[in-house]
Write a protein that binds this DNA or RNA. Structure first.
Length: 562
RNA sequence: GCGCCAAUAGCUCAGUCGGAUAGAGCAACGGCCUUCUAAGCCGUGUGCCCGGGGUUCGAAUCCCUGUUGGCGCGCCA
């Protein structure tokens, strides 16, 4: 159990025990006690913890806040606890101060736990599916996918650290209209390369990659003469060949690029497989059994409005083909029912937020508790160049690809940068700033802290520190601040998981690095005083562990030298 | 028109289960390297927390309303 957690539990116990004995003595009387809330005061002068309980009671107890607070303080038993003092302040806050020793215990605990420091077991035994990126396999991945990748992968790591058994999953949209368009685009480019004068479809994929695919194809098949036989084929058959081949190439390219980005998926799930395994039909049967489907104008509808949505949605078109919506329902039933995940989280672009309610509705209708499904919506990245917005369109082929970005700024900077702001905040990516390798990039600041520590440790290895560790020698404010920061990693991870906001960890890393740099400038580690030297050595070793653990969660390297 | 998300320092953003004097980075200015990496540290100041109502001991935070911006509202995905 973590020290902070233990302290908080003790303080809460002290408060509730004090409340009960105060009431037994007749100081005041209430029917039901409100939940005891502890907060960490912004001002250090207000102690380590504060509670507002005495300000919540007056309405029920008919006594003034400070009177109630006094009564609580009078009845508080703090002997043999880590609590140093209790006082009443302001309008009725009760402030708690802890004995200094608790911070020393944090350092000791970090040494004991090492790479596991920060892990908790609250969700042990539960399975967690995280689906993210899921870019269309019809072309290269762009900057939006880069943000989704960083958010999803880090969220997955965070979930693992809170005890979940996590599966990272990529949903391949290898069925439906996009694929049709992909085939059309490939086919027309092929025929153009073969010398036919035909116009390119208005809504086709105009990217260079389509043409390059077909150029490679023709080369590999032995040139235009050898490819003449493809021109003789039925169009549909030819397209099928092109699609199969190029889809495979695109998918393996995505796998490779995502690995470069530090993301490894456990499952690549094919939309097409939902058709082959009859999952679509099974989903349809379940939906029909719910009684919330009906036929109209030749299509099959799902009465989404029954679940509070704005309008009903089509499941099967009047041409007999399932919609993407039905496919998505089947996919999620596969996750929840067939594979039995306890929780499923999807990272979606905010432009898909309209689908959240209806997907949840479909889960409810088919008997899946919709609370098990969560969607993290991510505001799309707005690309800025020379102070102006650049519109990106995959269809027109106007993209800055994920690969280009990683080549320019590196995996670490890209991941760090995309995870700097909460997913729901609009995010401007300034190309000029990102493509020049600038020191403004905060990832260097954090990595530098780690490298600095390693440098000191290298020099001290030869100097053979003695045992007899006495952490009470760490008294400087910079030392205390650093220790305090070290103590909060476990709860930061828990909160990041609860709020599904991985950017909190990035900011934690920056704050921790900042506390270390301040310490570094204020306190020298390699001092003559052996006791102090040992204590500071222990502190920076603990700091290195915590920095390393945080960077590991973020998927960013922790360099030993810079 | 309806729905979702946002609006906080010059800029980019934290803070939002209601708490004590609203924070950080960047930008500006001034200091700190004969001492463990100056990719660092320290200091200086700036806010009608978008406007207007309401709820209460207390509101950037909750409710209502208006404004502005992004996105969505297809038998596309």
């Amino acid at each position: 159990m973590y020290i902070r957690e233990k302290n908080e539990e003790i303080i809460e116990n002290v408060i509730s025990t004090a409340l009960i004995s105060a009431m037994e003595k007749g100081d005041f009387q209430v029917e039901t006690l409100p939940e005891i809330m502890l907060e960490v005061p912004r001002e250090k002068e207000h102690g380590d913890y504060a509670t507002n309980i005495a300000m919540l009671l007056p309405k029920l107890a008919k006594k003034a806040p400070r009177v109630i607070a006094q009564s609580i303080v009078d009845n508080a038993m703090i002997d043999d606890t880590p609590i140093k003092s209790i006082e009443i302040a302001g309008p009725g806050f009760i402030n708690f101060r802890l004995k200094d020793q608790w911070l020393d215990e944090v350092v000791t605990q970090i040494h004991e736990m090492g790479n596991d420091y920060g892990k908790t077991t609250g969700h042990r035994g539960k399975t967690y599916n995280l689906e993210f990126v899921s870019a269309n396999p019809t072309g290269p991945m762009h900057m939006g996918n880069a943000r989704g990748g960083a958010i999803g992968d880090i969220l997955a790591s965070i979930a693992q650290w809170t005890g979940y058994e996590v599966t990272r999953e990529f949903y391949i949209n290898d069925a439906g209209n996009q694929i049709e368009k992909f085939g059309d685009s490939l086919d027309v480019r092929f025929r153009q390369l073969m010398g036919e004068d035909i116009p390119f479809p208005e809504d086709g994929y105009q990217g260079e990659d389509i043409t390059e695919h077909m150029q490679t194809f023709i080369e590999e098949e032995g040139g235009t003469d050898a490819c003449a036989r493809y021109m003789q084929m039925e169009e549909a058959q030819r397209k099928e060949i092109f699609v199969q081949r190029c889809l495979k190439l695109n998918i393996s390219k995505m796998q490779k690029d995502l690995e470069t980005y530090g993301i490894h998926y456990d499952v690549w799930f094919s939309e097409q497989s939902l058709y082959e395994n009859k999952d679509i039909e099974k989903a349809l049967t379940l939906l029909k059994e719910s009684g919330d489907t009906y036929e109209e104008e030749g299509a099959l509808w799902f009465a989404t409005t029954k679940y509070g949505c704005e309008k009903d949605d089509v499941l099967v078109r009047n041409n007999g083909l399932p919609t993407y919506f039905l496919g998505d329902i089947a996919y999620h039933l596969n996750k929840f029912v067939t594979r039995g995940f306890d929780r499923c989280i999807n990272v979606w672009g905010a432009d898909h937020h309209g689908h959240i309610a209806r997907l949840k509705a479909a889960m409810t209708a088919t008997g899946v508790d919709a609370h098990r499904l969560d969607i993290v919506t991510m505001q799309l990245v707005r690309l800025m160049r020379d102070g102006e917005t650049v519109r990106m369109s995959k269809r027109k082929g106007e993209t800055v690809s994920l690969v280009d970005l990683i080549e320019e700024v590196g995996k670490d900077a890209a991941r760090f940068f995309f995870n700097l702001r909460s997913p729901d905040s609009h995010f401007d990516f300034d190309l000029g700033l990102a493509l020049e390798q600038s020191n403004d990039n905060p990832v260097f600041y954090v990595q530098y802290a780690h490298a600095r520590i390693c440098s000191i440790l290298r020099q001290m290895e030869e100097e053979q520190p003695q045992s007899d560790l006495n952490l009470t020698l760490l008294k400087e404010p910079e030392e205390k601040s650093l220790m305090l920061r070290l103590s909060t990693l476990p709860e930061e991870i828990i909160i990041a998981e609860e709020k599904m906001d991985p950017s909190r960890l990035t900011r934690y890393a920056i704050d921790l690095a900042s506390d270390f740099h301040s310490f570094y400038n204020a306190c020298r580690v390699r001092v003559d005083d052996e006791g102090l030297r040992n204590a500071r050595l222990a502190l920076i070793q603990a700091t290195r562990t915590v920095l390393k653990n945080t960077l590991t969660l973020l998927g960013v390297e922790a360099p030993e030298r810079m």
